[in-house]
Structure formats: structure tokens, C-alpha cells
């Protein structure tokens, strides 16, 4: 008998038990693990899809923002370039103005310096010329020339009215002033002879008496090298001069006056303070050989006008 019914029953039972065992220990755990993994994979894929969607959204956002940023950057760059150009132009203008001002200042300073140098050279030349002139004239001066000059002096004194009047007024200009014995000083380069002194005294007394002035004054004679050659008479702050030195002085003052006036007339831009001078009193009298001046430091007259 090929079929043993007990064995059939036992095997049926065995098979059913095996079904339960494998269901419990094999299929269920394995299928659960597979399900769990599939759920996790599905969740992961869903998460990945969500992240992908977010990433795409963020990328779009980024692209949009980037475009906006690029646009803003371009606008800002353009503005900056224009602003820089304006600023550069402003700075360039200011620099040009400063450079012009500096150049003008330098040119002015140079002109002033040139003018000062020219003035110095001119002044030195003038001084040298007159110093040489004085030296030459001083060397040429002599007794005879002096005598001739005294003679001319006395003649001029007698012939000229205006300076003489001014001179005689000096005796009465100040009423409180008492004319002393040495109130009239006559200075010459060389010692005057007695005739010359007498002629001078005579003509002075005559002039004063003609002018109705008190004539109780004395005359004092002195010699001085400052006149080079000539004679001068000083009374009460006034003096009448007839000398080569006076010629030279007058000429020097005239040249100085020319120097002062001429550059001023030519130079329209700047003043020439370095060579500016004042009008020299007595220069108007340069035409006449006898000039009348006020003497500030006159030892005879204690006070000047």
C-alpha cells in the first residue's frame, strides 16, 4: 500500500504547522520589511520631489533676483560713472582754477621780483653815477671856481625877488625869536676872502634894511666839504644855496622823480612800491641856480617851520 493514511494525516498536520510557522517567521516579517522600505523610499522620493520643487522655486526666485540685481547694478554703475564724471570735471575745474591762480601769482611775483631787481639796479646805477659825478666835480673844484660862484651868488641874491623875500621873512616869521649875533650862517667849501665876506655882509644888510627888517644880526662864516663847490646861507630854518652839490641833488631828484613816474605810467598791472618816492621840495627850483629850502636840522634856527 503506497498510501499510509496515518502518514497522510501527519503530513497534513505537519504542512499546516509549517504554513503557520513560515507565515509567522518568514512571510510576514519579510513583507513588512519590504513594505517599510517601500514606504520609506516613497517618503524619500516624495521628500526629494518636494525639495526639487522647492529648489526649482528657489532657483526661479534666485534667477529673478539675480536679474533684478543685475539691473540695479547696471543702473547704479551708470549713476556712479556719471557721478564720477561730474566729480572729476568739478575737481578738474577746481584744479585748473588753482593752477591758474598759482600761475598768476607766480607770474606776479616774478614780475615784482624783476621790477625790484630792475629798481635796485637802477637805484644803484643812479647812486653810482651821482657818486662819480660828485667825485669828479669835487676833484675839479677850486678857489677860483669858488670865487666865481660867490660872485654869482651875490648877484643872484640881489636880482631875485621871491626867494629873497622868503629869506628875509625868516627874520620876522617868529616874533618871539630874537635874532642873535650868529643868527645867519654862511657856509662855503673854501675859506672866503675878506672881500667876499664883506660883500656878502653888505648885500645882506642892504636886503634886510630894504625889507624894513631889524638888522641887528651877525653873520658867521664856516667851511664845509659837503657843498663840493659853492656857497649857502642859512637863517632861521631857511637857506639859500648856490653850489654844485645842489645841482647834483636837484638832478638826482629829477631823475628819481622820472623813475618814479615813468614805470607807474607804463606798468598798469602792479604798483612799484619798492621805488616809489615823494616829491622833493625845491625840485621846482632846479631851473634856477639858487634854491630855497626848509632845514629841519638847522643848528642856527632851533625850530623848523
Amino acid at each position: 500500500m503506497l498510501v499510509d493514511w496515518f502518514t497522510v494525516g501527519a503530513q497534513t498536520l505537519n504542512f499546516l504547522i509549517l504554513v503557520w510557522l513560515l507565515k509567522r517567521f518568514l512571510y510576514r516579517p519579510i513583507l513588512d520589511a519590504i513594505d517599510s522600505r517601500e514606504k520609506k523610499i516613497a517618503a524619500t522620493l516624495a521628500g526629494a520631489d518636494m525639495k526639487k520643487a522647492e529648489a526649482l522655486e528657489e532657483r526661479d526666485d534666485y534667477v529673478r533676483k539675480n536679474a533684478e540685481f543685475e539691473q540695479q547694478r547696471a543702473v547704479l554703475m551708470q549713476d556712479s560713472i556719471e557721478e564720477a564724471k561730474k566729480q572729476g570735471q568739478t575737481l578738474m575745474d577746481e584744479a585748473r582754477k588753482l593752477a591758474d591762480a598759482l600761475s598768476e601769482k607766480r607770474r606776479s611775483a616774478l614780475q615784482q621780483e624783476q621790477q625790484a631787481i630792475r629798481a635796485d639796479i637802477s637805484r644803484m646805477t643812479r647812486e653810482e653815477v651821482f657818486a662819480i659825478s660828485r667825485k669828479v666835480l669835487s676833484d675839479l673844484a677850486g678857489i677860483e671856481l669858488e670865487a666865481r660862484m660867490v660872485e654869482v651868488f651875490t648877484k643872484k641874491l640881489a636880482s631875485l625877488d621871491e626867494p629873497l623875500k622868503t629869506f628875509t621873512d625868516a627874520f620876522t616869521h617868529n616874533h618871539t625869536l630874537k635874532i642873535s649875533h650868529d643868527s645867519v650862517l654862511v657856509r662855503s667849501t673854501f675859506e672866503l676872502t675878506a672881500e667876499q665876506k664883506g660883500a656878502i655882509q653888505e648885500i645882506l644888510h642892504k636886503l634886510v634894511s630894504d625889507a624894513n627888517k631889524p638888522s641887528d644880526f651877525s653873520i658867521r662864516f664856516e667851511t664845509t666839504q659837503a657843498l663840493i663847490s659853492g656857497i649857502e646861507m642859512i637863517a632861521n630854518g631857511r637857506k639859500i644855496v648856490w653850489s654844485i652839490n645842489d645841482y647834483v641833488d636837484t638832478l638826482e631828484k629829477s631823475v628819481s622823480a622820472l623813475w618814479t613816474d615813468a614805470p607807474d605810467a607804463k606798468m598798469s598791472t602792479h604798483t612799484m612800491d619798492a621805488v616809489s618816492g615823494s616829491q622833493v621840495p625845491g625840485s621846482q627850483l632846479s631851473g634856477s641856480q639858487i634854491s630855497e629850502k626848509s632845514v629841519a636840522d638847522n643848528p642856527i634856527a632851533g625850530k623848523s617851520e
Binding site: N14, I17, L18, L21, L22, F25, L26, P29, I30, D32, A33, S36, R37, K40, I41
Partner: peptide, 19 residues
């Protein structure tokens, strides 16, 4: 039965739900 059950229990004792 013993072979199938024991091997199933042995293999599935530390099942992994991960990749």
C-alpha cells in the same frame, strides 16, 4: 520544517527596513 523555521527565524531576527 525545522530547517525552514530556524533559518527563517535566524535570517529575520535582524530585519532591516532601510535600503
Amino acid at each position: 520544517m525545522l530547517l525552514l523555521s530556524v533559518s527563517s527565524i535566524w535570517i529575520t531576527r535582524k530585519l532591516s527596513g532601510e535600503i
